[in-house]
Design a protein around this nucleic acid. Structure first.
Length: 525
RNA sequence: GCCCCUUUAGCUCAAUUGGCAGAGCAGCUGACUCUUAAUCAGCGGGUUGAUGGUUCGAGUCCAUCAGGGGGCACCA
């Protein structure tokens, strides 16, 4: 049997593409090759192979290309162009793409036969030499070809890739290998998180891990997910913040700590909210919220340098300048500027609220102020801007200014109306903390499972926690902003989606059962 | 939870007023040893998300359900 054997009739007509590819698996095995491959040592990232270009010798007088440096790569077949007894492939790995030339006489009959069983989407290992084709493209001229993974499902359309958003989120593996910008975003996300770690480490912070399952979900106001430990017969909550544990470490003498924490909030889903998301929280003993502002700028600066170094960045069709230092504005100044009255001017606040259609009867003055701020100010903040010095009544668990107890030492960082970071001078008075906890809990419904006093935390504070600055940065939102991605699902690899209904979800496996299994030495593995 | 939009071949998309479901890519067969989304010739591939309804006739109109997208609400 020579190469170029024809498909059996059953595989030629009326069969789906998976079945056709399963037949090819068999034939690869019949050629004595493993379609799934083995460890493949010594291959070079494609961008490193491309960097060898200066070593490619010039063509001789006859126009022949002397062999260039050897190259050994592994990658996925993205494009294939056949021209008789020559085949051009575009292979891609996670560093780039490069063209492969496979000539029948150059690779030999055995490899040529193997190439007949190759499809778009397969993983190949290639040995060859670097050179140029007639049209001048840098190309690996293959001498050895090895299957490192046969794709038995067809890849998406080669030009458009996978564009259906639902498919991109549900089928992330395919999205990543077929949409370059998707892979690029997640590689950048990793670089951003690396920069966050490096910056904090460089400033003497140590990374810690605190419980994800907590008996009391504290540190924020959000509805938690509930879970259960069987042996202890214990109701546990997925954390909504690492805050209270990190502060206990401050009491213990760990003076600068941070955690890149996955947190879980049982709330709505939107382009800015995923039920689980990543938050960096850090605490610095003997610091305050001003320390945290400087730190925030340093973190963003190093993250931007890690991505592309461009401080003026596109975002939602506009442009944002991240060159530090960023503007720092007090809450009351911004309120006066955008709402048009002082935050203490009760009559004006009420009339402004009424003008916006807010319900004002029986609503506390501070709530009206907060609503007006969200309505008038936040969306107007192009940023990056630190909004500082919040009314103390809006953030009861924050240290107040000694000069003005009505003002809390807090800032939030805004970019185009989106909150990216939140920081406080932490309250370290256990007696005040406990009474504020109690009054906060008094206003909550009994069904809110978070409405519990964290006495262990208060206990720890009683041993004295140093004055400290605390900072939280929403990592997903930070990545969205730096990469100009409109949805949080574009920066989370596997965002939460409702499971597909049975008929659709089961179709893949159901079809396998009804399909005749090709006989193969690899069957059953 | 509410409102709007959306779902057609493996993928990307068409289908006039309600009148025989179509194209490109991918696949299969053949040609071609320098292509660039290769090209050329031929062939196969569909429960139009699901279930009902209106109609002589439904991808198209109506209802319900499901998935997804966007917005609002909830929510720091």
């Amino acid at each position: 049997m020579k190469y170029g054997t024809t498909m059996s009739d059953s595989a030629t007509h009326g069969e789906d593409q998976e079945q056709v590819r399963r037949v090819k698996l068999e034939r690869i095995s019949a050629l004595g090759r493993d379609p799934w491959g083995q460890r493949f040592d010594g291959h070079q990232p494609i961008h490193e192979v491309r960097a060898l270009e200066p070593q490619v010798p010039p063509k001789d007088e006859a126009g022949h290309q002397p062999p260039g440096p050897p190259a050994r790569i592994a990658g996925r077949v993205m494009l294939r162009r056949t021209a008789g007894k020559a085949i051009f492939l575009d292979l891609r790995d996670w560093t780039g793409r490069i063209q492969i030339f496979c000539g029948k006489s150059q690779v030999g009959d055995d490899h040529w036969a193997l190439l007949q069983e190759m499809d778009l989407g397969d993983l190949l290992g290639i040995d060859g030499t670097l050179g140029y084709t007639k049209t001048g493209e840098l190309t690996i001229f293959a001498t050895q070809i090895e299957f490192l993974g046969k794709s038995i499902l067809p890849p998406p359309e080669k030009w458009h890739g996978l564009t259906d958003v639902e498919q991109r989120y549900r089928n992330r593996s395919v999205d990543l290998f077929s949409n370059q910008e998707s892979l690029a975003a997640f590689l950048s996300r990793s670089k951003i998180i690396g920069a966050v770690r490096n910056t904090l480490g460089g400033q003497g912070f140590i990374e810690v891990e605190t419980p994800t399952m907590q008996a009391i979900a504290g540190g924020a106001a959000a509805r938690p997910f509930v879970t259960h430990h069987n042996t202890l017969d214990l109701t546990l909550y997925m954390r909504i913040a690492p805050e209270l544990y990190l502060k206990r470490l401050l009491v213990g003498g760990m003076e600068r700590v941070f955690e890149i924490a996955r947190v879980f909030r049982n709330e709505g889903i939107s382009t800015k909210h995923n039920p689980e998301f990543t938050m960096m929280e850090c605490y610095q003993a003997y610091g305050d919220y001003h320390s945290m502002m400087d730190l925030t700028e340093a973190i963003f600066t190093s993250a931007i340098q890690a991505v592309d170094g461009q401080f003026v960045r596109p975002l939602n069709g506009r442009s944002v300048d991240f060159t530090p230092p960023w503007s720092r504005r007090t809450y009351s100044d911004l309120f006066l500027e955008h709402v048009g009255c002082g935050i203490d001017d009760s009559d004006s606040v009420v009339s402004k609220a009424k003008a916006k259609g807010f319900d004002t009867v029986g609503v506390a003055h501070d709530v009206l102020v907060s609503n007006l701020f969200e309505e008038y100010v936040e969306d107007a903040l192009e940023g990056p801007v630190f909004v500082t010095d919040y009314p103390a009544s809006l953030c009861p668990l924050t240290k107040r200014k000694t000069s003005d107890p009505k003002v809390a030492e807090r800032f939030e960082l805004f970019v185009q109306g989106m909150e990216l970071a939140n920081a406080y001078t932490e309250l370290n008075d256990p007696i005040l903390q406990e009474s504020l906890f109690r009054s906060q809990l008094a206003g909550q419904k009994a069904e809110d499972s978070m409405a519990k006093m964290d006495t262990e935390f208060i206990e720890a504070l009683k041993h004295a926690m140093p004055p400290a600055g605390g900072l939280g940065i929403g990592i997903d939102r930070m990545v969205m902003v730096l990469l100009d991605k409109p949805s949080i699902r574009d920066v989370i690899l596997f965002p939460l989606l409702r499971p597909r209904s049975e008929g659709v979800a089961a179709s893949g496996t159901a079809e396998v059962e009804t399909r005749p299994e090709p006989k193969s030495e690899f069957e059953g593995m």
